[in-house]
Design a protein around this nucleic acid. Sequence first.
DNA 1: CCTACCGATCGGTAGG
DNA 2: CCTACCGATCGGTAGG
Lengths: 190, 190
Amino acid sequence: MSHSREDVISAAGRLFARDGYHGTSMRDLGRELGLLGSSLYSHVQGKQELLVAVVERGAGFFQAAADAALAVEGPASERLRRLIAGHLDVMLDHRDEVRTYLNEARSLEPASRERVVAARDRYEQAFRTVLKEGVADGSFRDDVDPKLAGIFVLSILNAVDRWYEEDGGLDRAALASQIADMVERGLRTG
Amino acid sequence: MSHSREDVISAAGRLFARDGYHGTSMRDLGRELGLLGSSLYSHVQGKQELLVAVVERGAGFFQAAADAALAVEGPASERLRRLIAGHLDVMLDHRDEVRTYLNEARSLEPASRERVVAARDRYEQAFRTVLKEGVADGSFRDDVDPKLAGIFVLSILNAVDRWYEEDGGLDRAALASQIADMVERGLRTG
DNA sequence: CCTACCGATCGGTAGG
DNA sequence: CCTACCGATCGGTAGG
């Protein structure tokens, strides 16, 4: 059986998400793919390169979703709802990459970690921008701190990975609107 | 220099919080205390025992804070504010234990992990109870789902560890009321 | 992608 | 708390 580099990265995401970067050995990863640990070195230069690839995949999915949400016309609150739904879609469709992105980025070497931190800041900026717009157009209260509110929304969203299972009574769209409703009530004027 | 078992557990918390359980070796921990890795085995039976001790410290701090908050008389919203402020106090006063509790519990062996999960459920129950009381006495909207709302509040609180630094412009009490205000606006009737 | 291997490091132990 | 050590496992390489 022959594997592509993409296969190796996906399998790495699976194991990093489950056992952590330090909890996963190259031999574990080989076993997951049905080959020896040493055989992985024909696909990648080293373990750290795999972590970089998985984390950058996760970051890329989030940024693509944010770009799409920001492009939507209409009121800021609509873009905020899209950001929330898009974040949930990315989390639930790419759970391994997202988990690795959220929990294992600290195991990146400094240079790549800095790039990931910058990407995370840029993504957070999308939330902050929409919140500022909502304050500016009067739909959100003017004592809303966009930075703090953005952090709170992202905190709720990122934690979803820790408790939510899609096969329960609450489907993805219902969860998205529960979060959006709760957040909007916290922000809205009047 | 002689060390107590408590010293060893505190140092373990420091390293587990910073480098993770799998990223910390017994030799690392020995170095932190000025002795050899093998010397630690006169204080503890093994590495896993240290993880259990650190995580249970973290869990214990949280439960003690919740018990105190629940004992406060008056409206449910006041107990909710106490739960929020108490959670922040525990996080910021015991950052290493809390970080280990939040991020490294998955490295516990099954038996102790189950105990920790049970303790976490019990703690979450405190939030749910107060939210239910608020719905019952009419101060919170009756379409508030106490389970979901509790998860959202705890999501915001637990994420604080990931971004907040106490020496910035926002002090601990101000952060607590920002969170409590935002949450209450999301819950309140009218 | 495997065989065969490297030096380093891991958690842990015996004995003092 | 140290000396001296154990077998297992780590990330990685040379050569095919």
